[in-house]
Nucleic acid binder design. Structure first.
Lengths: 187, 187
DNA sequence: TTCATTTTTTGATAATTGTCAAAAGTAATT
DNA sequence: AATTACTTTTGACAATTATCAAAAAATGAA
């Protein structure tokens, strides 16, 4: 079962129906490292669930490539705001590793929303979750030093430090690459 | 009609029904300057529409009072994440002016969600809107100097500068009060 | 008006972090 | 193994902004 559906109980008949319906709508896709899922300006017509691999969302700001999101196994991947607003995304989504995704289209997802009351709030919950992550990032950026932010990141995403380059993590944390390098070594 | 319902067309019979249903569920409330709507730890069981007045959301961080939101006429007011997650809020909501609000309860709102397909996506859209605001704040905090952030704020919320104290705006922008004072005068 | 409280301003200083430039290290390809 | 490209580290320096302390200004109440 996909992480998105963890709130279901496959023993309940009505949940089983939902599950079957869901399974009839999804597609499995694989992408190679380095490939792009979206470029800035793309329409985001699908929601993805990462089964294996790693995706980086980024954008250009003041001539620099800035990371704003990493999505790994078990997480939902898309340009969340653009997906729900039906607008072009400003981000680039790029595979940092060979990845396997489950794909569902916006319209199919909406069909599920309408068909299953239990599923209906999923979209909002997804937004709330992402909102919470943003609140925390803002909080870190506003109140903690670069050193502290690095420490938080390591606590929560130690595994990513092995899989993502220093520069990408630095821009995600709002720190220059040089400073992050110093922080990592000095201590 | 309330700003929340601006997507409705009162000439359509089905929208008229929604509107009447909505009106039967709301309450009008007035609060005096200085009163609190929520304290940290409060349950947020209502959504408010500010008709007149100004509300400030804040929290304590490192011994300081930090503003994170101002809500004025025409805007929706609550601790948005706590409201939808049904968890206690971490914020304090305080009236900076005598204010008139329209109140609707979480359960009534949900009834409307379920009863009117057209209304159903409202909750998600609210979250998307707030998400967009946060993305922008994060962006400003990460890439612009205090001076630039002040300029942005003045462009978008010139009116608030008259109505909110310098210290409150400083903490909202992630700037010390002294620095904001200097920025405002130096130029 | 006067006193008390709150808010804003000013000055001096220190700390954090970014920037630029170059070197060192690592990985990938021929 | 050698070349090339990319990533990380190091050094020197400058700029932005916070902090602390105190003065000035504004607000509100008696």
């Amino acid at each position: 079962m996909h992480s998105i559906l963890s709130f279901l109980n496959p023993d309940l008949p009505e949940d089983k129906i939902l599950l079957e319906d869901f399974n009839s709508k999804i597609q499995f896709k694989s992408f190679q490292k380095g490939r792009l899922l979206y470029r800035p300006g793309s329409r985001c017509n699908h929601l993805y669930f990462v089964q294996k691999g790693l995706v980086r969302a980024s954008y250009f700001k003041k001539g620099k490539d800035v990371s704003c999101h990493f999505t790994k196994e078990g997480q939902v991947c898309t340009a969340i705001d653009a997906f729900f607003q039906r607008t072009p995304t400003q981000y680039q989504l790029e595979f940092l590793e060979d990845s396997d995704l489950v794909e569902i289209s916006y319209s199919d997802l909406h069909e599920l929303f309408e068909r299953y009351p239990k599923f209906n709030n999923y979209g909002r919950e997804l937004m709330i979750q992402e909102y919470g992550i943003l609140v925390e990032r803002l909080n870190h950026l506003q109140f903690y030093t670069a050193k502290e932010r690095y420490a938080f990141f390591m606590e929560e995403h130690r595994d990513l430090f092995q899989r993502v380059s220093l520069g990408h993590i630095a821009s995600y944390l709002g720190i220059s690459q040089e400073t992050l390098s110093r922080i990592r070594n000095n201590q």
